[in-house]
């Protein structure tokens, strides 16, 4: 099966003052695949996602998305191109309910003007219903019906992570960036999260870039893996190729298994 390239980063270099977070990184993400980004702490994984969704602007290099070179643009415009993400540290809207958090994920698709919004009639009501239905599908999919109206600040950690995934899903993006979606979860929660990620990929055909520390999970669910270490690309290939790469074993797996 030959797939199109959805996203390609070319020769990305990013530094903060003296710290070189990324050095000359190139890789691509194919349409419909689950692409894992792994590496030890501080390797530059999160920075890479931040470059992809336009939050960091690299000093050098190019980002190609959907066949087009992406000029420098603010991250809210990148979101409109079809890139959604979750964060390593949960970044939900704490004062809002689960439902509102998910609905806010659909804001990029809502355009009813202020006049109708103020009256809550006609187009405003229609638009709200339309998006509500979409969001309810996601709520069912993630099995979070019972916390629909709960302010997310009151939810336990694992559920918050799930709601955050929901908010990213609500955008119906082409590319979903997940920064350690399973960090800090217990085994059961991890299994659930894996299931959701696989199902999203399967059922909705969403392309996923995933950062994860749990090697078992990574090897299980990803199609291809890119390994970063101190801002450099160490290896890139299928889970099997990466697993048997001597440099990866030395630099990363060795450390993790000590």
């Amino acid at each position: 099966m030959s797939r199109d390239v959805l996203l390609e980063v070319k020769n990305i270099s990013l530094s903060f003052g003296g710290v070189k977070a990324l050095r000359d990184i190139s890789f691509d993400i194919l349409e419909g695949e689950i692409r894992a980004i792994i590496g030890p702490n501080g390797a530059g994984k999160s920075s890479m996602l931040n470059v992809i969704n336009g939050f960091y602007h690299p000093q050098e290099g190019e980002v190609w998305f959907d066949g087009r070179l992406r000029g420098p643009m603010p991250s809210h415009e990148v979101a409109r191109l079809g890139i959604a993400r979750t964060f390593q540290n949960i970044a939900l809207f704490k004062g809002m309910s689960t439902l509102d958090n998910l609905m806010s994920g659909r804001l990029i698709n809502m355009k009813c003007n202020m006049f109708w919004q103020g009256l809550w009639r006609g187009p405003a009501e229609r638009e709200e219903m339309e998006h509500r239905e979409k969001v309810e599908e996601i709520i069912d999919f993630l099995k979070i019906q019972s916390i629909r109206k709960t302010p997310v600040g009151r939810l336990p950690y694992g559920l918050q992570k799930r709601v955050e995934l929901g908010r990213a899903l609500a955008a119906e993006s082409k590319l979903l960036l997940l920064d350690e979606p399973m960090a800090g979860m217990n085994l059961e929660e991890k299994e659930d999260m894996c299931r959701f990620i696989l199902d999203v990929n399967d059922e909705f055909g969403t392309t996923i870039a995933l950062i994860e520390h749990d090697m078992g999970v990574v090897m299980d669910i990803s199609h291809r893996v890119v390994v970063l270490d101190y801002g450099k690309k160490l290896a890139d290939g299928t889970p099997d190729e990466v697993r048997s790469d001597q440099r990866v074993i030395d630099a990363y797996l060795g450390v993790a298994h000590e």
Partner: peptide, 9 residues
């Protein structure tokens, strides 16, 4: 920051 990343200008 999260608002911007979900596309809120």
């Amino acid at each position: 920051i999260a608002a911007e990343i979900i596309g809120v200008p």
